[in-house]
Design a protein around this nucleic acid. Structure first.
Length: 587
RNA sequence: UGCCUGGUGGUGUAAUGGUAGCACAGCAGAUUCUGACUCUGCUUGUCUAGGUUCGAGUCCUAGCCGGGCAGCCA
């Protein structure tokens, strides 16, 4: 979110700017600035942000907001951005997720090793230090080992007005020190005991009712292997991760507002009794609202379920709202960035119209995607007066929005395909395309006129159009000035190439999946994917995976990674806006 | 029920006590070798009630409505 100067600052940028003005977080040292390629300058105010994902799933479009916000801040204020894995729960975390997250963050352009990069980190690398702090808190009488079962803790949680209880709260520090040591050494089974902070069992903020700091988890970790069998809880760990890395602004989402007093308490408790030079850094937390999307589900748990149950074909299924899904679908990082910039950053929970995202990718691709012609549902057209065997290579502009994109040639022959939807035997008033007796233009080619319709005798289905062309209209202009009301895309039946095209629709039928029944799967769109055999112009025969193209009048498409030489596969990224479809509904 | 938090057109936002503006969507039109793009115009809003003030979306009080929290998840 690296805005232009004239755009008003969002509230977080405002906070950071104010802090910089006040030099609240100190300045970059000469050694920081001297790092090769560094965007930090010695003496300028420090801004250090981070994106701290848990590697327990793939990143989705909502995470992109946070990544772009954090990285954008580092860029805007000449600071640094860390990518840090919050890997404190080996039961749910996997290396596959670490790898995918790195790929996605990099793709979005948040370069954690670049000029504004602070580096790549793992919370699990801090486990030793965190353990030492826990021991320190026990010594200070600020934490204890509790042998209540999870069930018991839950039962004793209390109510907003009645306090929680634990019979182990006042055990001697020596006893807790012995037990935490045993926990660490693996003496006790999962769930036997926990380390708890001794804060306030009666607090109206439940996060302060002696929260668990460590639990026993005999589980291998993707980074630390079998070194640990106790793992820190998120709340205990998170503030320290930011502290250790010197994060200035710990930006997180609204649901952590209630946790802030806890993070403050942990750091203050470590610092208590320490001399000024031994105190650990205390970052400032700032909360912002997530952005939800209509027709979309973003909870990692539910996305995982769709993957596991085979509702979609993996995390990067082009219908998924994951970063990798959007990438495969043909979205660009620029479009995603523009989208979130337009949405802004606030503390108001909002549901964003999915159309906004589609609009962003259309705008981007309109500017940069070369045009081509492809017929999704081919209808055969025979040009009756075309010279037998003749091939006419016609010049076509690659992108009317960008003259520099140049031109290509497309072959016109006696047998063509046009889109089935572009012909109607009994057209309604506002239908401008082909119909019996009507003349239209074929893009970049000729005016053609429909003379006769051939139907399947048995089904009555239109199987072929017999047309004539006007040789004087070569290139698409009529010397006598006569007009046609439509220009159609087309492909030579003889020289076109077949391709599989995957047409995606939204995954859910309703704006708020699950709102009706409580089960989001009830709102699945049964036809979110349609596969067609298309015919495309030969210039596309050598298209490479990831190539993006506008099939004129249809939409933007990209070559899927399933494509093989001679067997092209295209994904439809998004359709073009289509005024006719609205008219058609009214007709 | 306790604590935290938020309410500006259909949607997302701006206005930092001084003309409620922008974008998307919608509607109408122009243009067009993509019913796209582009351009023009239009419709629609400060949760409510009091108060402070020359002046309130903004400050104060009370209420209303929404979101979050009571995992050994993050």
């Amino acid at each position: 979110m690296n805005d232009t100067a004239d755009k008003p600052l969002n509230f977080i940028q405002q906070i950071v700017e104010d802090d910089c003005r006040a030099v609240k977080w100190g300045t970059w040292k000469a050694s920081d600035a001297s790092r090769p390629g560094s965007a930090q300058t010695a003496g300028s105010p420090r801004v250090h942000t981070r994106f701290p994902p848990e590697p327990n799933g793939y990143l989705h479009i909502g995470h992109a907001k946070s990544i772009l916000l954090n990285f954008g801040l580092a860029q805007k204020f000449g600071g640094r951005f860390n990518l840090r894995f919050d890997d404190t729960n080996p039961a749910k975390e996997e290396q596959e997720y670490v790898d995918s997250i790195k790929a996605d963050v990099a793709w979005l352009g948040a370069n954690w090793h670049g000029p504004n990069g602070g580096g790549l980190f793992f919370a699990s690398d801090y486990f030793d230090r965190m353990y030492d702090w826990a021991v320190e808190l026990i010594r200070k009488g600020k934490a204890y080992v509790c042998e209540l079962s999870a069930d018991e803790v839950s039962k004793r949680r209390g109510t907003p007005t009645a306090p929680a209880t634990s019979p182990f709260r006042d055990r001697p520090a020596e006893e807790s020190l012995r037990l935490i040591q045993e926990m660490k050494e693996g003496t006790h089974p999962n769930g036997a005991m926990t380390v708890r902070a001794k804060i306030d069992l009666a607090s109206p903020n439940f996060n302060l009712r002696d929260p668990v700091m460590y639990r026993i988890l005999h589980e291998a970790h993707h980074n630390t292997g079998s070194k640990w069998c106790i793992y820190p809880m998120y709340d205990w760990a998170h503030g320290f991760e930011d502290s250790i890395e010197g994060i200035t602004h710990s930006i997180c989402t609204l649901e952590f507002e209630n946790h802030r007093p806890l993070y403050d308490w942990f750091i203050d408790s470590v610092n208590e009794g320490r001399s000024a030079d031994k105190k650990i850094h205390h970052p400032q937390q700032v909360e912002f609202a997530k952005g939800l999307l209509t027709y979309t589900i973003l909870s990692k748990r539910n996305l995982l379920r769709m993957v596991q149950e085979g509702t979609v074909k993996g995390w990067d299924d082009p219908r998924m709202p994951t970063i990798s899904g959007f990438r495969r679908r043909g979205y660009t990082p620029e479009a995603i960035r523009t989208f979130w910039e337009e949405i802004g950053v606030t503390k108001t929970e909002s549901v964003i119209d999915l159309g906004r995202l589609e609009n962003a990718i259309r705008t981007d691709l309109n500017r940069r995607a070369p045009r081509a012609m492809g017929v999704l549902r081919p209808l055969k057209v025979t040009i009756e007066n075309w010279p037998e065997g003749k091939v006419d290579w016609l010049e076509a502009q690659n992108n009317p929005e960008d003259p520099a994109a140049g031109s290509r040639t497309v072959p016109f022959t006696g047998t063509l395909f046009v889109e089935r939807d572009d012909f109607m035997e009994n057209p309604p008033k506002r239908f401008f395309r082909l119909a019996p007796g009507r003349e239209v233009r074929l893009r970049w080619a000729y005016f053609v006129k429909c003379e006769r319709v051939v139907k399947d005798a048995a089904t009555g289905e239109v199987t072929e159009l017999r047309c004539t062309f006007d040789p004087a209209t070569r290139g698409g202009d009529s010397p006598d000035g006569r007009k046609v009301k439509a220009t159609l895309h087309w492909v030579s039946a003889d020289l076109g190439v077949p391709a599989e095209v995957r047409l995606f629709d939204r995954l859910f039928k309703v704006e708020d999946p699950g709102a009706r029944t409580g089960e989001f799967m009830d709102d699945l769109n049964p036809i979110s994917l349609e596969v067609v055999r298309a015919m495309i112009e030969p210039s596309l025969a050598e298209a490479k995976v990831g190539d993006k193209v506008q099939f004129e009048r249809l939409g933007y498409f990209c070559v899927d990674r399933d494509a093989k030489p001679g067997a092209l596969v295209f994904n439809r990224t998004v359709t073009l806006k289509d005024a006719w479809s609205r008219v058609a509904r009214e007709e």
